[in-house]
Computed example of a mutant assay.
Amino acid sequence: MIRSDSLSTWTKPTLTLFCGLPGSGKSTLAARLETEGRGVRLSADQWQAALGVGHADTDFHERLQGVLYRHALALLRRGVDVILEDGLWMREERTEKFADARSCSARIELHVFDVDHETLWERLRLRNEQAEPASYPMTQDELRWACTVFQPPSAQELSEVDSYTVHNGGLP
Rank of each mutant, 00 (worst) to 15 (best):
G79M: 09
L84I: 04
L64G: 05
L7M: 09
R94Q: 10
G54I: 08
T28P: 02
A49P: 12
H71I: 00
Q151W: 00
T14I: 11
A30Q: 09
Q156A: 13
D116K: 03
R144H: 09
E109K: 01
D45Q: 08
R32M: 09
R144M: 06
D45H: 10
A74M: 04
R144W: 02
N128G: 13
W89I: 10
L75D: 05
R94M: 15
N128Y: 13
L126G: 11
H167A: 01
L51I: 10
E96T: 12
E109A: 06
Q151C: 04
P153V: 11
K12I: 00
T148I: 05
S27F: 08
V80H: 09
E62L: 14
L143Y: 08
E109F: 01
H71M: 04
E118R: 09
L7Q: 13
A106V: 04
G169R: 05
R123Y: 12
G87C: 14
G169Q: 05
A101G: 04
R78I: 00
C147N: 05
I83L: 15
S4V: 13
L88N: 15
E92K: 12
A50P: 04
E118W: 00
I83G: 03
A31P: 00
D57L: 10
S43E: 06
W145L: 12
S6Q: 08
L126Y: 07
E142A: 15
S154R: 05
S103T: 13
L124N: 10
L64E: 06
L64R: 07
